[in-house]
């Protein structure tokens, strides 16, 4: 059957998978870092940062990731910024977008830690940094794990949008295969299957983390 054609295209598929995973892992790392920093800055209520951070969040949560990605990719070319290839543009867009969403997850976690914890820590003379590092953040982790994993699942799926700027991730490679051998149904099913095999275990993990967090 035509499945032979797909099998022979496995090289293309593999490239797509690697590129998807690369972009996913990189954005998870950068997005989480940015999200954590923004959350800490917001909860610290530093003068002058309140409005800019709020604007950042409003813009990146209230508009589509696709448009943000196009803006960054074509905008970089427009501004003459070199070195912004499809990977960098996609990574930047994903970092900013996911960073905004992740920062809200962290912020909710930080604010969920009872106020008394901070007061007790202050009474002992711990510095601001020490309080966040040794008392608040360790307690934030179990609270934010489940929503974070949920967000990461979304992130992996969002990497598909990089197709629009020509990044050779799974969906684009899938289209390349279809261009070569046809068989859109089978090809797309295989691509969907690959995404499912990445995301579904993460969903199960997130669900387990959520029940654990409730019982903590």
């Amino acid at each position: 059957m035509g499945w032979q054609g797909i099998f022979e295209s496995s090289g293309i598929l593999f490239t797509g998978l690697v590129n998807t995973l690369l972009l996913s892992v990189a954005s998870i790392a950068t997005g989480t870092t940015l999200g954590l920093i923004v959350a800490l800055l917001r909860t610290a209520r530093i003068r002058g940062l309140g409005l800019p951070l709020r604007l950042y969040l409003e813009i990146f949560r209230g508009s589509p990731l696709l448009v943000q990605m196009l803006f960054i990719y074509f905008g970089a070319a427009y501004l003459g910024i070199r070195g912004v290839d499809t990977f960098m543009a996609a990574l930047t867009a994903l970092t900013l977008y996911e960073g905004a969403l992740i920062s809200e997850i962290f912020r909710a976690g930080i604010e969920a830690v009872p106020r008394g914890q901070r007061e007790a820590a202050r009474s002992l003379g711990l510095s601001r940094y020490q309080i966040e590092r040794y008392v608040i953040l360790p307690q934030t982790v179990p609270i934010v794990l489940a929503p974070l994993v949920g967000q990461y699942i979304g992130l992996v799926k969002d990497t598909a949008l990089a197709t629009a700027i020509g990044y050779f991730e799974l969906v684009r490679e899938g289209q390349a295969i279809i261009d070569r051998i046809g068989m859109p149904i089978e090809t797309f099913i295989v691509i969907a299957g690959i995404y499912f095999m990445i995301c579904y275990p993460m969903s199960l993990a997130a669900r387990r983390l959520e029940t654990r967090a409730l019982h903590a």
Binding site: D158, A160, P184, F188, Y195, F196, C199, S203
Partner: peptide, 19 residues
């Protein structure tokens, strides 16, 4: 639910339009 939520919406769109 599980199929839709664990695959990208762009892919779902392409399947509907192209497949």
């Amino acid at each position: 639910v599980e199929t839709i939520r664990n695959t990208p919406v762009l892919l779902q769109l392409f399947m509907i339009y192209f497949a």
